[in-house]
Simulated assay, not measured.
Amino acid sequence: MVAAALAEARRAKGLTQVEVAAALGRRQPFIANIESGERRVDLVELIDLAAIVDLDVPELVRRLDTTGK
């Protein structure tokens, strides 16, 4: 669900994976691997990614808590 939320927020903001990766100082496969679920994000990465794509992390955590995923 985290990966899907990040991908959805990125698309909603009109950003490409390349643009998000560049903002983080990373390469595009880093973002692709997160969005595909091949790579998990740690809390620091999540906060950095969320700031770029305007994702509300506390709200995401509440959704995860109520869905159990």
Rank of each mutant, 00 (worst) to 15 (best):
I47Y: 13
E35R: 04
D54S: 15
T67I: 13
L43S: 14
L24C: 04
L43F: 12
R62N: 11
A32F: 09
R39Y: 11
A7L: 05
V18T: 14
L15Q: 01
V18W: 09
N33E: 13
D65T: 10
A12K: 08
F30Q: 02
R63L: 11
G68I: 01
A9M: 03
V2E: 10
N33P: 03
A22Q: 14
G68P: 01
R62G: 08
K69S: 10
V20P: 00
A23H: 01
L15N: 02
I52A: 08
P29T: 02
V53D: 06
Q28D: 04
L55S: 07
L64P: 02
V20R: 00
N33I: 03
E38Y: 15
I34T: 01
P29Y: 09
R40V: 08
E59Q: 13
L6N: 00
V2R: 06
A50L: 07
G14F: 07
T16Q: 11
I34E: 02
D56V: 08
T67Y: 07
V44Y: 14
G14D: 05
R63Y: 10
A9Y: 02
E8S: 10
L55Y: 07
R27F: 02
T66F: 14
E59C: 10
P58D: 08
G37K: 08
N33A: 12
E38P: 04
Q28G: 03
P29I: 02
R40K: 13
T66P: 07
K69A: 09
A5M: 12
A51I: 05
A50K: 06
Q28N: 06
E8H: 08
M1F: 03
